[in-house]
């Protein structure tokens, strides 16, 4: 299985949304940012722009939450993928995802998320500043720490201890 991941550097992002255009184009052949599963968030206060997409969590809560096993792992890329013909559109995955990176598509009545374009993500190609790259990177200690912290907070929250 590939060890490549979407590596996002918000410092380099200018907020142009070429990634959203490329993502929607791959899915529909047209330009429709509302269908994009990578999205650029603008933080006015920090004067910063942050593209965000599915982290492809090892322990994917969307997958665990799904009552009909409609979320599977792509053997090649490790991406968590939605099986359209199995998904019933219940949105439990959308609720479960701590990062807000799996979406409900009203028209299709199904969940939709980043599938890493089968190993060649269009958003990384489209990004003009190198803020999005698809590469093998050492996630670094902070990502692990961050993941653990988020996980702990979530566990505390559902156990009713507050966060």
């Amino acid at each position: 299985m590939s060890d490549q991941v979407l590596s996002i550097d918000p410092e380099k992002c200018t907020g142009c949304k070429q990634c959203e255009l490329a993502c929607s184009w791959i899915q529909t052949g047209a330009f429709q940012p509302s269908k994009s599963v990578i999205r650029v968030h603008v933080f006015d206060e920090q004067a910063s722009f942050a593209p965000y997409a599915c982290f492809q969590c090892d322990e994917a809560w969307c997958m665990q939450a799904c009552p009909v096993n409609a979320i599977d792992v792509d053997g090649q890329t490790g991406a968590k993928i939605v099986l359209d013909d199995v998904c019933v559109g219940c949105k439990l995955c959308v609720i479960a995802c701590p990062f807000g990176t799996i979406f409900y598509d009203k028209q299709a009545d199904a969940a939709t998320k980043c599938d890493l374009c089968a190993g060649d993500p269009a958003c990384a190609h489209a990004c003009p500043t190198g803020a999005i790259e698809f590469s093998s990177v050492d996630p670094g200690e902070w990502v692990v720490d961050f993941g653990v912290a988020v996980n702990d907070a979530y566990v505390r929250a559902i156990e009713g201890e507050g966060s």
């Binding site: 200018t14 949304k17 003009p128 500043t129």
Partner: peptide, 17 residues
């Protein structure tokens, strides 16, 4: 300068914050 900023689909990003 805090950062430069792009308009929609712009690959230049000449805007100033």
């Amino acid at each position: 300068l805090a950062t430069n900023k792009a308009c929609f689909a712009c690959t230049i990003a000449c805007g100033r914050v």
